[in-house]
């Protein structure tokens, strides 16, 4: 038994759903005076507890709106849960939306440093890995071109190359990465499999039961913000498929 690297205890996430979104002061004051500020409480996640041990590859299954993305956001630290505790040990890299931090007026080169900084890398690290990133993304000739002139495939490739250049201890993946053309997709899958083989811990969200079965050894099944079942990937997937 390895030690747990992700420990989630009784995590719950509450949203306030208002009938109409009030996002300005004028409406807020008017509604407050008319006593119309009604909020509907809504728990996107409730009583979520699980542990992931080092080297585990955990798949998260569930329909749209089951709370999968919210769970990933909580684990990657973007959202703070309303209740419950979370413990994460090790370097966590989220592969959510690639290149979300790009500045379109910046060149490819400048974006490597900017996006790298957002992901928490140091300058020395980026200097050292710069060639590797460019090589992997296959865009050497375009490094001094502003990103706004990149094709969406090139952006995604660059984003993927920057995000995966580190050796993360925990990798958070949302859906499968369909990046660029068929050739690059193979390459990116190979890179992810390489990371898998190195024994990193993975949290993987997918709609595809096939993928979870193929890639994961453990799984959680979420429905309406609650855990329906967790355990061995094969078992959970079969039950999920039946439902």
């Amino acid at each position: 038994m390895g030690k747990s690297v992700i420990k989630v205890e009784n995590v719950g996430m509450q949203f306030n759903l208002s009938q109409e979104k009030v996002d300005n002061l004028k409406e807020y004051v008017i509604k407050m005076l008319k006593r119309e500020l009604l909020f509907q409480e809504f728990w996107a996640l409730k009583n979520i507890s699980f542990e992931i041990e080092k080297g585990d590859r955990m798949g998260v299954l569930g329909l749209n709106g089951a709370g999968k993305s919210t769970l990933l956001k909580i684990i990657s630290g973007v959202m703070k849960p309303t209740e419950g505790n979370l413990e994460i040990k090790g370097k966590l890299v989220p592969l959510l939306e690639l290149g979300a931090g790009f500045d379109s007026n910046y060149t490819g080169r400048e974006n490597i440093y900017l996006n790298g900084a957002i992901l928490g890398y140091t300058k020395e690290f980026l200097d050292e890995k710069y060639d590797e990133i460019v090589e992997f993304a296959e865009i050497r000739d375009f490094m001094d071109v502003p990103i706004k002139n990149f094709s969406s495939g090139m952006r995604a490739r660059l984003g993927f190359a920057i995000a995966t250049v580190v050796e993360p201890e925990i990798l958070v993946l949302d859906e499968v990465l369909s990046v660029g053309d068929a050739k690059f997709r193979q390459k990116s899958e190979a890179r992810i499999m390489e990371l898998f083989d190195e024994g990193i811990t993975v949290l993987f969200v997918s709609h595809s039961i096939e993928q979870v079965k193929r890639l994961c050894n453990k799984a959680i099944w979420l429905e309406k913000g609650k855990i329906v079942m967790q355990g061995d990937a094969e078992e959970v997937c079969n039950k999920y498929a039946e439902s």
């Binding site: 990657s76 703070k80 979370l86 994460i88 890299v93 440093y113 900084a117």
Partner: peptide
């Protein structure tokens, strides 16, 4: 991204870690 933390005190603790980011943003 080291996240062995409980969200508290990240205001100050993280400052040195993200210094490079601040430089890049400026």
């Amino acid at each position: 991204m080291e996240i062995s933390k409980k969200f508290e005190h990240r205001f100050i603790v993280n400052f040195s870690k993200y210094q490079y980011l601040l430089k890049e943003l400026i």
